[in-house]
Design a protein around this nucleic acid. Structure first.
Lengths: 230, 230
DNA sequence: TTATATTTGTGTAAATCTTACGCATTTTAA
DNA sequence: TTAAAATGCGTAAGATTTACACAAATATAA
């Protein structure tokens, strides 16, 4: 009985990007198989001698030419025995956040079929990928409130208003500008730089930077990041 | 390449129990294989036509004779290619919480090698099971603070002091009795019963009950359970 | 029967954190 | 020079959290 198990192991990647008050996800167009022409999450089968993390990085790179160095495991999909009509396949889904500079890397080498989609313009995807994406989005929303991951979606130096908009956009909520700023600054993990934004409209604004080291130190001491909204 | 993938898919179960200010985990003794005589988490290979959830329930039942109807997926372990020395095996770990009545069901039928271990008397386990358990425990601790799961470890009717001790024990923290009680009661999800505890020492205490329905209703409306301690 | 030990059950004041709210400043473009 | 656009700032009221101590109900032992 242990000898005839016939289950494939795949990984899938949800890669989130953000720009101009829009959340994006990176998708690829299926070329082969029964799900041909459907868009899908990047991913594929794990190799025998490869870690799951490596597998998801490799597949992403192969299929979209995007490189990501940190993926977080999201969930393993394997309760629906027929989630892939060809074989029994279980998929370990991962997600990653990339900064806006990566949003332009489409139509590359063999990644011609990769494209960034706005989160609310996602088509019907192959397999159970809409469901996977849904779970990823829920996780993103939840994490945004209790871990400082929003910064991973912004350039190294960013405007406070961008951070603000990111929270509004992803969480689909209004926020009180003054209180938000006060709160974030009170943590002491975001610092003003000497630079001003190149934006030409309105009063010039200082650029800010997330201080990873400071956050890690505070975190060690028991600090918990948390942003709540009514 | 897709044809020669050779990776086994297993599930493992962390089953937590609680009694008398002690947190327990259910382990089995390995009978075969290189990890013979080591204690291990219940678990085994998934069948081709079986959901992951069903697999973990089946394995647990087979190996320990304990039945659990809700497992939560914890994490998938598959980055270490040699975590099982025999083959490449990835394992989807689940955890469950059971009430004290199940703590007695040892030495049953074919479950003679199953045993409850106190959480701080866990021996060296087979494979990477200590690591899996560690992750499970972290999750349990975290969830305890933001979801009302402590009740799953108690009998249907319980003393407030038992709930209190459960939190202290698992989180390894002191708590302020009056504030804890006030807080929990303020949620309106725990109700007094008409019954008194059979304990014969000290002032007789009312038994309390967790109202699942009430919690679900409140949760729908956006209520978030949360217990924090200094 | 009385005293002691044990555990339950409760209130309040101070401190902290959260919320709500509006206006002056600095720039660009008309 | 004026209008439009976005930044940057402070405070008072309300809500939540914390810290803290003693009386009540029972069983048991003296």
């Amino acid at each position: 009985m242990t000898e005839n198990q016939n289950i494939r192991v795949a990984v899938d990647a949800i890669v989130f990007g953000y720009q101009n008050s829009q959340l994006y996800v990176l998708l690829i167009q299926q070329k082969f198989g029964t799900q041909e022409s459907y868009w899908a999450l990047p991913g594929g089968l794990v190799k025998n001698d490869e870690s799951l993390q490596d597998a998801v990085k490799r597949e992403l790179k192969e299929e979209t030419n995007v490189e990501v160095n940190y993926f977080e495991q999201l969930f393993t999909f394997g309760d629906d025995v027929n989630r892939d009509p060809r074989n029994r396949v279980i998929s370990i889904a991962y997600y990653a956040l990339v900064d806006p500079s990566k949003l332009k890397v489409q139509a590359d080498t063999d990644a011609e079929h990769a494209q960034w989609f706005k989160i609310n313009e996602i088509p019907a995807l192959a397999f159970d990928h809409n469901q996977i994406l849904k779970k990823g989005l829920e996780r993103l929303k939840a994490k945004l409130t209790y871990e400082p991951i929003g910064f991973d979606l912004l350039p190294k130096e960013f405007l406070f208003s961008e951070l603000e908009n990111l929270y509004c956009t992803i969480l689909e909520k209004e926020i009180e500008r003054r209180n938000f700023r006060k709160k974030i600054l009170s943590f002491g993990i975001v610092e003003e730089t000497e630079n001003y934004s190149p934006v030409k409209t309105g009063r010039p604004a200082k650029l800010f930077r997330f201080n990873h080291k400071k956050y890690n130190d505070l975190h060690e001491e028991g600090f918990h990041f948390e942003i709540k909204f009514a």
